[in-house]
Amino acid sequence: MESVSVHGVAVTALGLGTARMRGDECRQAVTTGLELGYRHIDTAQMYKNEDAVGDAVAQSGVDRDEAFLVTKILRGNLRYDDVLDSFAESLERLQMEYVDLLLIHAPSRSVPVSESVRAMNELQEQGAVKHIGVSNFSVSQLREAMQASATPILTNQVEYHPFKSQRSLLEFCIENDVLLTAYSPLNLGSGLSDETLQEIGARHGKTPAQVALRWLVQQEHVAAIPKASQERHLAENIDIFDFQLSEDEMEQVFELQGGLLTRLRSLLQL
């Protein structure tokens, strides 16, 4: 599987999102995903499924250092002490000694990002967190987090798909070596009947969903974490590394959101 490298860290370009899955459904989805070759697993305190994710990873037989595990601090836990305390509980639920990436799930309206980042930096010093990042941050909020942190902000996880532009953020991430991690990369299934995606897919023998995911991971500094629970969807989503979209096809998909490729041509390596 392809990886994206930022700040010298290789992150698997396609991961497994687990939002809205709990209990046995989540446990089975992660188990199946790991069997199929997924190694980038995304969870969060808010999802209330860290225990199921931890169970699946522990029972999978996959070496811990082969899995890239991401979790997120709930917005209500962003005070310094709350970050430390709630993360300790997350580790216990995950049955792990560390996570590979810890994110602020969303910017707080009342807690300075510097306070949250200071606690996350401390967790890095302790070895409980390898890398830190943010989620749902604007360009200005991301810049503030970067300035507050003693270590690189590895990613900003945001909604991104063929029908939602992240032009300014993508440009900023490319220029500053930050990974843009796309959640809801299939727009919750909406738009997959689009003629452009269908026509491109037909040329490659791929589904519209596979075209959308390939379009994302083919962009510089972009990874995607589609959520899936059924084995056929998990298998379909990961089967995107045996074909490549042409520059014209990339342009066609960008045009679904008003066009972007020509403005990023100097930054993207397609």
Rank of each mutant, 00 (worst) to 15 (best):
V70Y: 03
A44Y: 05
F68D: 13
G37M: 08
Y38D: 05
I73S: 03
L74Y: 15
A56H: 10
Y47H: 08
V57E: 01
K72P: 09
V62E: 06
V62N: 05
T71A: 03
L74G: 11
K48T: 03
L36Q: 09
R64A: 13
T32R: 12
D51H: 10
L69T: 08
D55M: 06
D65F: 08
D42P: 02
D65Q: 12
V70P: 09
S60T: 10
G54D: 02
L74E: 15
D51P: 00
L69N: 06
I41P: 04
L69Y: 12
L36H: 11
V57F: 05
N49H: 01
V70N: 04
G54P: 05
F68Q: 13
L69Q: 07
A52F: 02
T31I: 10
A67E: 11
A44Q: 04
M46R: 15
K48I: 04
L34F: 01
D42Q: 07
I41E: 08
Y47W: 07
D51V: 13
M46V: 13
D55A: 12
S60R: 07
D65G: 07
G33N: 06
K72R: 13
K48V: 07
I73A: 03
D63R: 10
G33I: 01
R39M: 06
G33D: 02
Q45R: 14
T31R: 15
Q59A: 15
E66N: 04
Q59T: 14
K72N: 11
D63K: 05
T71D: 07
D51E: 12
G37D: 07
T43A: 09
R64H: 13
D55I: 01
A67L: 15
Y38R: 10
L69S: 05
T71G: 03
R64N: 14
Y47E: 11
G33M: 05
A58L: 13
L34Y: 00
V57G: 02
L74P: 07
V62Q: 08
F68M: 13
K72C: 12
Q45F: 02
T31E: 13
T43E: 06
V53N: 06
K72T: 12
E35Y: 00
L74T: 07
E35K: 03
G33Y: 05
T32F: 04
E50T: 02
E66S: 04
T32E: 15
E35A: 12
L69I: 14
D63S: 09
